[in-house]
């Protein structure tokens, strides 16, 4: 999705002038969509008294030490690592398990193929709200309530459908000739999966990795129901908790927000096109 070389209006001053309302609109929307994040970034480097004195001023002195304080004293370090452990593990599991299922569905004819596909893809229309209450009971019974392991498994189950859906669409387009040739060369089934489907499927795997990473890093509903102990909280829960207990400490809350959005911004700066593609993958026809 690269912008085509549209007819540039730059050569034509009249056209330029006629377009100025449009350009003004675009400028305003840019401020509206990006401004709030800049504002938080500025606030994260200011102390709460400074912010209350003048909420929209630039930092008079840059307080980097607030990040250290947030990380250690306000427990954001714990939240950050919990989020990292949960998201990295869940995304890794989703990618490998999802690819295995997608490979089978895209490649093999077997009895029960349609049933398996129906069962897995039915997850696309099952809202979390339908499962969350009984998952609460079930995790209590399995002794997985209030554990990161429990949350990871729930995340894997909940996001398998979209992962398989995206990967299968891609895997199905890999030419069958490749697999016939590999079979003739004596590759085993698992070698075919490992040495042909996965390497060729890397772009699709990137797509699902970014999609799952963003959604799980931001996930709130499952986490708020399944985790209650402070040292288990993920970042979204930690921020909510901090907001509940220190509502007036706007400066420290802003620092916490920056810790939560930092990794996302960093990845977005590095892989913006992949991330846009990933986030919209399920919706583009």
């Amino acid at each position: 999705m690269i912008a085509p070389a549209a007819k540039s209006p730059a050569h034509n001053w009249a056209a330029h002038l006629r377009r100025s309302p449009l350009l003004a609109f675009m400028l305003i929307y840019t401020v509206i969509s990006g401004g709030p994040f800049l504002w938080v970034a500025v606030m994260s480097l200011r102390t709460t008294p400074e912010i209350f004195a003048s909420p929209y001023a630039l930092p008079s002195r840059v307080h980097w030490e607030k990040f250290v304080e947030a990380w250690t004293k306000s427990n954001y370090g714990t939240y950050f690592w919990n989020s990292t452990i949960v998201v990295v593990t869940a995304v890794a599991l989703l990618t490998i398990i999802g690819a295995m299922v997608a490979h089978c569905l895209a490649r093999y004819r077997f009895r029960g193929n349609r049933l398996v596909r129906f069962v897995i893809l039915s997850g696309l229309i099952l809202p979390p709200q339908l499962m969350i209450l009984s998952l609460f009971q079930i995790l209590l019974e399995y002794r997985l309530y209030n554990t990161l392991t429990g949350l990871i498994i729930v995340y894997v189950a909940g996001h398998l459908a979209i992962t398989v859906y995206i990967l299968e669409g891609f895997f199905a387009q890999i030419p069958q000739d490749l697999f016939d040739a590999a079979r003739l060369d004596g590759y085993s089934d698992l070698e075919i999966f490992w040495r042909i489907t996965l390497p060729i499927g890397v772009p699709a795997l990137f797509t699902t990795v970014t999609l799952n990473f963003i959604i799980l890093w931001n996930e709130f509903l499952y986490a708020v129901v399944l985790l209650t102990e402070d040292d288990k909280r993920t970042l979204p829960l930690g921020i909510m908790h901090f907001m509940g207990s220190h509502q007036l400490d706007v400066g420290m809350l802003a620092t916490g927000l920056m810790i939560a959005i930092g990794p996302v911004i960093l990845l977005y700066a590095l892989f913006s096109e992949t991330m846009i593609k990933g986030m919209t993958a399920g919706a583009v026809r």
Partner: peptide, 27 residues
């Protein structure tokens, strides 16, 4: 190459189906 042994299918589909049965369908 359109056919896979039963073992292959169990290995590839097993984990997903177990997780799905326990944490999607059952709930």
């Amino acid at each position: 190459a359109r056919r896979a042994s039963r073992t292959t299918l169990i290995v590839l589909l097993g984990p997903a189906l177990v997780i799905y049965a326990a944490f999607m369908i059952y709930p």
